[in-house]
Design a protein around this nucleic acid. Structure first.
Lengths: 213, 213
DNA sequence: TAGATTGTTAATCGATTAACAATC
DNA sequence: TAGATTGTTAATCGATTAACAATC
C-alpha cells in the first residue's frame, strides 16, 4: 500500500468499537424515525465515552453537525467503506458439530461483509445434513471448493486432535486466515493469520467480576 | 474489600492473558515431561512478550528460578487461586438452539471453575432433549432452579426479540451476571453485570486484516 | 566462573479523558 | 442570541517495551 493511501491500519480496539457503532446505529435506524444520532447516544449504547466516539468518527472521515449530531446514514456508510464490507470475504466452516452448525447458520455475518459459503465434516453421518441453507460436505471436497471460489477464511470448529491436520489442508488449499475455536494452538506458515477464540474467557471473566466486584 | 486485601482488581487484558497462560501451561504439563516453564516459552505460546509474562506472574505472586524458569505447578496454582477457580460459579444456559447447545455441552469450562448446570428453552419440542449430560427444561422452571441452587450467571442465547424478557426473569430470579449472545442490548438493574458477546467481531476482524494487511 | 534466566526500574508508546474552542 | 453539540488540543493514565541489575 502506498504512502498516500487513505486506509490506515486500525487497531484491534478501534475495529471492535467501529463494529459496535455500526451495529447499534443500524439498530437505531431500524427502530426509530430519527435520521441523526449524537455521539452521546452512541456512547451510551456502546458503554463508552462520547469524546472517544467523536474521535473515532473523525478518524474515519465522518463530520458531524453541531447542535444536531451525526447523520446515521453517513456513519454507516463510512464504517462500511472503512471496514471493506462492500468487498465480501468468503469463509468455510470446518466441523459440523453444534458450534460449527451455530456459526454456519448464524445470519448476522452478511451485514459485515462476511459470507459463509460451505460447511465440511469428516463424519459420513453428518455429510449431507442441512445446516441453515447449507449442506454439509465431506472434507475431501474442501480443497476444490477453496480453490474454485477463492475462499480466504476457514472457521475451525473441529476437535483439538484434528485441528492441526484440518488447518494444514485448508492452508494448502489457499486459505489465508483461520478463526480457531479448537482449544489448541495451530502452526501455520508466515502470511496466514490465525485468531484463536478462547470461548471460556468470556465466562471466566464474568465469573471473576462476580467474585471480586 | 479492605485496604490490605491481597486481591487487586485485574484488568480485562491481564485477566485474559492469565487465562491463556493457564491454558497453555496446563497443556504443556500434559504433553511434556518438564515441570518448569520459562517466560519466553509462555510468551511464544501466547504470542506476547516475555517481559510482560514475567511482570504478570510477579503481579500474582509467582517467583521464578533464575536459569531455570517457573515451576509449572506453581504458575497453575497461582492463577487458579487468583481467578477463584476453586470457588466454582454456577451458570445456566437460556435457549437450547445450536449455540446454546454448543455452550451447554462445551466441556472446557470446568477447568476454569465454571459449571453449567442447566439448559432452558420455551419450545416444547426442545424440552426434554438431551444436551451433553443435561436435559432441556421449560423456562418456567428457571426461577426455582436459580433460587434453589444459588446460580449467579445466565448465558443468554435466545433470539433477540426474547432477550430482554428472558434476561429480566433471570435477574428477578437472582442471577447476577449475563453473558449475552443475543444481538441486542439488554437493560438490567444496577449491580448486574452484562457482557455482550458480539460473535461477528472475530470474523469481521480477520476479514479486515486480510483486506488491509 | 560464565551464562541463562528472572526481577525491576525507567523510557516509551498509545489510548483515553479532560478541557475548551468552534460552530450552527 | 444562547445553547447544544461537534472538533481538537493538551493532560493524564496505563500498558508495553527496553535496559539492565540480580541471582543461581
Amino acid at each position: 500500500m502506498g504512502d498516500g493511501d487513505r486506509k490506515r491500519e486500525l487497531t484491534h480496539a478501534l475495529l471492535e468499537r467501529l463494529i459496535h457503532y455500526y451495529h447499534f446505529v443500524a439498530s437505531q435506524v431500524e427502530e426509530q424515525q430519527s435520521s441523526t444520532v449524537t455521539s452521546a447516544e452512541i456512547a451510551k449504547l456502546v458503554h463508552t465515552d462520547d469524546t472517544l466516539v467523536r474521535k473515532d468518527l473523525a478518524a474515519i472521515g465522518v463530520r458531524g453537525l453541531p447542535r444536531v449530531g451525526y447523520r446515521s446514514a453517513e456513519v454507516l456508510r463510512a464504517i462500511h467503506r472503512q471496514l471493506g464490507f462492500d468487498q465480501p470475504s468468503q469463509a468455510v466452516v470446518l466441523g459440523a458439530g453444534r458450534l460449527g452448525g451455530a456459526l454456519a447458520s448464524y445470519d448476522g455475518f452478511d451485514r459485515y461483509g462476511l459470507d459463509i459459503c460451505g460447511v465440511f465434516d469428516t463424519d459420513p453421518d453428518k455429510v449431507g445434513a442441512k445446516v441453515g441453507t447449507l449442506t454439509v460436505r465431506p472434507i475431501e471436497e474442501l480443497g476444490e471448493m477453496v480453490r474454485r471460489r477463492g475462499i480466504s477464511i476457514a472457521v475451525l470448529t473441529v476437535p483439538a486432535e484434528a485441528a492441526q491436520r484440518v488447518a494444514t489442508s485448508a492452508v494448502e488449499a489457499g486459505v489465508k486466515a483461520i478463526w480457531n475455536f479448537a482449544s489448541t494452538n495451530i502452526v501455520v506458515p508466515d502470511g496466514v493469520f490465525v485468531r484463536h477464540e478462547h470461548i471460556a474467557v468470556g465466562l471466566a471473566e464474568l465469573s471473576y467480576l462476580l467474585k471480586s466486584g
